[in-house]
Design a protein around this nucleic acid. Structure first.
Lengths: 204, 204, 204, 204
DNA sequence: AATGAATGAGACTTCATTCAT
DNA sequence: CATGAATGAAGTCTCATTCAT
């Protein structure tokens, strides 16, 4: 039945994601995955040709979802006419949106950031593309608000990466590495909002 | 002779570091290491009880050196009496010092950040301690300059991590992932100096 | 319906024969067969208890047919009263009949001779019986024409096998291993006719 | 020690040849080989990268030896000036030499002829080359004695193959498939000598 | 101090066969 | 009759580690 097959596949994906999160890609064996999914060894290969392909599949799923969420989070919510308070509020919402998104995909972020899977070229490619698209959005905002007017493209990229680093490093510790409450996220986002605002609009 | 033994050990360490950098911990086999080091398989185990212990040994070497360098880089070079120009210059020197240090230890940073080796608990511990000590220094500076006076300890840590993230993310891309010239480093450090100055002293 | 069932079975047999010919018995998987036959995996086992039994079934089909053809080909077409020309013509017809028969069953001959399937005891038995019956006919002809009057039974068998070897080796290369035209077959048969005639009647 | 290594390798080769002979290539598992050789599973892969490579290695060994033997066996022992008796004796010696050679390499011949290993392209290539070189020699003799003067190259090849078939088919049954005594071989060679002499020189 | 052959547990993967629907 | 998901035994191969020399 179609339903059983889909269910089995999902069970395998779920079990794998859990295990990759717990032990990393390399330390997770196909035998662990099938054991947790409650299926036989051979069943795994009915759905995924290799362990690697399963991982890429999971990564792509998440990546797809995150890219869409990023679009949405960064959708033009600020305008030049806003007051300082309004801009800060919008910035805060954006940052918090990011954090929440990372929390939602905590498992896969954990694997990527903590365990590292970059031996697989496909994985590297996906990650780079994801980074790129976030940088594009940040640079777009820089230009819109005419921040750093003296910067060249290279300097913009450095600045975008720096902002990106602020977001991911704090996410890593407060969201990915530990369970975090709504309140925790709010606090982190609040601090980052202040810092970023000061660094950008606040100092102009 | 003692000298030969020391040399052999060093050959193994060097070969291993190269290979870990090229292929990551999991994809580097003991057989690869001994081949490159030009010794027999058994010789490896004369110097290191396990492959893991070799990695930890390498990591510790680097870590030790980096901690000392960090102390030195962040040694009180700024004071409250300095002019804006002087402070900026000092900040720039510090950031550039960090970058240069990362470049020096590019290999091991590459392994840790790109390949990921956190399956090994010992490795996690070492990395966390390194992070902690950098954060302590940053927070100390925050307090010295009475930045963010309204922050509690938690908020300070978030801010420190955010600064840390700016440094490491830009290092990752401009120094660890690619060969970088003195000039490249200077440029990255210059941009970061501006950003951090604006974010902290500049906005007060 | 009975008709559909028979059709399904035939589809499986046809697909299997093609695949066995292309890849040999061991490299042909049941999954390949059902895929080409356009039926589900389980359907296979509705008609054949095992993969091996399917092969034996195919082999038996062919063997049955070939035995009958051999009878027919070697049916007494020569008599002691014939002229040299007539005998040669009859010999030629016989040899060519053999070749044509081999060509007709090229697939299965290919599998047996090129891929080898003799791990299966049943298969060995069938092949041996087929050989035996051909030898009996050849020996019968030897005796009829009083060739090799000094031979004992053992020597007759050796001679029969030698003739058999001439036929099969040339068949293997000119008929089984390559597509062959009517003309090709004629040529091979013509050469063999000369050789065999010289070896037997011609030298008496 | 070099000696141990060589010995171990030889043990593996010997065990493998025995098993390939008994069960064929496909039914012989690496685990069978190491068990019989008295070494651990991993040891196998110290000497041979794959099971296939071991087989090819064995085949090449034999093939090399046989080619040299063939050269020797067929070395010009006949001349146009010889008497019928002398020629027959020389022919007999040649045929018997072939038989003896096949007996010496009975194992590998058995595998090739009975089990079939032609899925492996390398194996096919080696076998074809071996056949070719035998045919060349036979054709050379045809021409030397001006047998079949009316034949074209193609007809020569057919005739050579036919002779080859006589030799191999009788070898297969009297030498490869069963233990054979010196006497058995002599008898088979005697019969073949008569047949081939009649077919060629005898009828001119 | 060094060698390198040997080990064996265990990884990934395949595939003939079963069985609930 | 037919399906196709599921099974699990068994195969090939890897590699960190040991040990006799």
């Amino acid at each position: 039945m179609v339903k059983d097959a889909e269910q089995t596949k999902q069970n395998i994906i779920t079990a794998a994601l859990e295990l990759f999160t717990e032990k990393g890609y390399y330390e997770t064996k196909v035998s662990d995955i099938v054991k947790r999914a409650g299926v036989a060894q051979g069943t795994f290969y009915l759905y995924f040709p290799t362990k690697e392909s399963l991982f890429i599949r999971i990564l792509n799923n998440t990546n797809q979802a995150m890219l869409e969420q990023i679009e949405h989070i960064f959708a033009e919510k600020v305008s030049l006419e806003m007051s300082e308070e309004e801009i800060k509020e919008s910035l805060f919402a954006t940052i918090k949106g990011c954090k929440t998104m990372y929390r939602e995909h905590r498992d896969i972020m954990y694997i990527l950031r903590v365990h590292g899977v970059s031996q697989i070229p496909e994985v590297q490619k996906i990650m780079e593309e994801a980074d790129q698209s976030l940088h594009r959005i940040i640079i777009h905002l820089f230009k819109k608000f005419q921040l750093f007017p003296e910067y060249d493209q290279n300097a913009y990229e450095i600045a975008a990466r720096a902002i990106h680093g602020m977001l991911t490093e704090t996410c890593l510790h407060y969201i990915i590495l530990q369970e975090s409450t709504e309140e925790d996220i709010t606090k982190v986002a609040r601090v980052l909002t202040e810092m970023i605002y000061d660094m950008t609009l606040g100092s102009k």
